[in-house]
Structures are given as structure tokens and as C-alpha cells.
């Protein structure tokens, strides 16, 4: 009913405004109603926190009304699908991440959206390395120790991850391949379920986002032995990267970025990009969201593509079962 009225009103307005170039006008006035930012994960989680920081700054500095809408489920697939099926008018944004745009296509045969065809990337917002950690009392002190331990007892070392086919799991598989070693993967339902086993040493090592392992590392329950980004993490300047520990070129990160449904007018995409980049440059935002990013739509699209190829290869080689 409402929609029909709205549609009729839009049609009437369009007729009235025949003399004015309607579309251009609409873009000049963008946004003239609330913009919704779909977060494909539940409130309070990492993706939600990042999204709310950006939404809050867009609202307070520009006077936009950006509403965060949590649409969680199926590893973010449901939220992405909802965004893909929304009107491409610039009033629906989605906070997507590696799992949704680069991993899901290789993992789920019935993925309801196409990451490339259904979305236009706007900008990267945050990129976070993974941390390889061990329990504080573990004899493993460095990545070299870990490799040596795995070589001494092939397949015996237990590798804990926050879940099957997460970036953390894939990074662990990827490292196994790169280092030519073999260990046993033990998946958990999220970081919090894995922590007791890792802290107590029942699992030999743990791969998870740096952010999620941070509290335990800070309090001395876990020890970080490497990060998986190309450069050292600003939070942990003393922790070496996997790449500098003898595996040059190794990189595994979780990134977060804003995309819009494909077909959103270019001027609106450009406007969104400009404003969000401005937000990201604010010192108080920079402090919370991770560091130097190449943020342009083209760079973002290239990252989606290159990560897709990398993880597709790992999934195939590790024999991870697809849904």
C-alpha cells in the first residue's frame, strides 16, 4: 500500500519536474532521506563496531542520517543477499568483508549473489591481520619453533581456529602449504570457545584476528608469535610477520569494505567514496580502524579479485568441503 503510494508520488513528481533534469537533481540533493547501512553480522561484533563508527561519523559531521541495520545469518550471506536485492539508488550500503566477497563464491555452490556482478565496491574501511598465538606456557616461542614442532611430529600438532572456512582457518591451511608441514585443524564455534583450550595448551596454537586475541595477549595468557599481514601491525611492533620469518610474500588479512548494489549511479558512488574517505582520515577514527589502506573503488575491486583467487586455490588444495 505504502509502496504503491510512494511509487505514484514518485511518478507524479517526475512528471512535474519534467523540465528539470530529474536524475541530476536527485543526486545533487543526495541524500535526502535516511541511508541504511546493512551489517551482515549481529550487533556488538567486530563488523558491527566498525560499521557504527563510520555511520556515526557520517551522521555527526555531514548531518546524514545513516541507520545501521543488522541482518545476520549464514556467515553474512543473508545480509549481502538483502543488499544485492535492494534498490540501487544509493540509499542502501553494505559492510562486506573477505568472507562474503572473496571466500563465499568458492565455498557455497548456491550462493544467492554474485560478488562481482551484483555489487559496486565503494571503499575499503579496515583491514586487520590475523595473529598466530600460543598459550603462555607453550615451549613454542617463534614461528620457526612452530614449524620445527610440526616437522618433528607430522599431523600431531593441533591448530585451533574460530571456525571452518573462516579466513583464520584458510590462513592456517595456507601456511601449512607454504611451509610444507602438516598439522591437525580443530575448528571451534568462534574465538571465545577456542580460547580456554589454547590458553591451557590443549591446542598447540591458534590463528584468529589480531583484535580478538588482543585481550589475552595483553594480559599474558597468550603469546603472539607472528602476524599474517605484509607489514608488522602497528599495535604490536615487536611481533614479526610470517613473511619476514622466511616465507616472503605470505599475506592473509581480513578486510572490511563498503559496497553498494550494482547499478548505483556513479556520481553517488563517487560522493560516498569521498565522504567515507574523509571520515577514515579523521584522527579519532584512524586510531580505531587499521592504518594505511588503498581505498579507491578500483583498488578495492582488485583486492576482492586477488583474494578470491588466492583463497579458491587454498580451499581446493586443502580439500575443504564446499556447501
Amino acid at each position: 500500500m505504502n509502496r504503491r503510494i510512494a511509487r505514484a508520488a514518485t511518478a507524479a513528481l517526475a512528471t512535474l519536474a519534467f523540465a528539470i533534469p530529474g536524475l541530476a537533481q536527485a543526486q545533487a540533493g543526495y541524500p535526502d532521506k535516511p541511508v541504511r547501512l546493512i551489517v551482515p553480522f549481529p550487533p556488538g561484533g567486530g563488523t558491527d563496531i566498525i560499521s557504527r563508527i563510520v555511520a556515526d561519523k557520517l551522521s555527526t559531521t555531514l548531518g546524514w542520517k545513516v541507520v545501521v541495520e543488522n541482518k545476520a545469518g549464514a556467515g553474512g550471506t543473508l545480509g549481502l543477499d538483502a543488499a544485492a536485492k535492494s534498490k540501487a539508488d544509493g540509499y542502501t550500503l553494505v559492510m562486506a568483508q573477505t568472507a562474503n566477497l572473496s571466500i563465499a563464491p568458492s565455498l557455497m555452490s548456491g550462493l544467492p549473489y554474485d560478488p562481482v556482478k551484483n555489487f559496486t565496491p565503494v571503499t575499503l574501511v579496515d583491514a586487520a591481520p590475523l595473529a598466530i598465538t600460543v598459550g603462555a606456557s607453550s615451549p613454542i616461542k617463534t614461528l620457526a619453533d612452530l614449524v620445527a614442532a610440526a616437522k618433528a611430529a607430522p599431523g600431531k600438532l593441533l591448530f585451533a581456529s574460530p571456525g571452518n572456512a573462516t579466513v583464520a582457518h584458510l590462513a592456517g591451511e595456507y601456511f601449512q602449504k607454504v611451509a610444507g608441514i602438516k598439522y591437525t585443524h580443530v575448528p571451534y564455534k568462534g574465538t571465545s570457545q577456542a580460547l580456554p583450550d589454547v590458553i591451557s595448551g590443549r591446542a598447540a596454537f591458534f590463528v584468529a584476528s589480531l583484535e580478538s586475541a588482543m585481550p589475552q595477549v595483553k594480559s599474558g595468557q597468550l603469546r603472539a608469535i607472528a602476524v599474517t599481514s605484509a607489514k608488522r601491525a602497528s599495535q604490536w611492533p615487536d611481533v614479526p610477520t610470517v613473511a619476514e620469518s622466511g616465507y616472503a610474500g605470505f599475506e592473509a588479512i581480513t578486510w572490511f569494505g563498503i559496497a553498494v548494489p550494482a547499478g548505483t549511479p556513479d556520481p553517488i558512488v563517487a560522493r560516498l567514496h569521498t565522504e567515507i574517505v574523509k571520515v577514515l582520515a579523521m584522527p579519532e577514527v584512524k586510531e580505531r580502524l587499521g592504518g594505511e589502506l588503498t581505498t579507491g573503488p578500483a583498488a578495492f575491486a582488485a583486492l576482492i579479485k586477488s583474494d578470491h583467487d588466492k583463497w579458491a586455490g587454498v580451499i581446493k588444495e586443502a580439500g575443504i568441503k564446499t556447501k
Partner: peptide
């Protein structure tokens, strides 16, 4: 739902 151990639905 998704089985935690195998990752399969």
C-alpha cells in the same frame, strides 16, 4: 545448520 567440525550444512 552448519556442522562445526566439518563445516557442512
Amino acid at each position: 545448520g552448519t556442522d562445526v567440525t566439518s563445516g557442512l550444512p
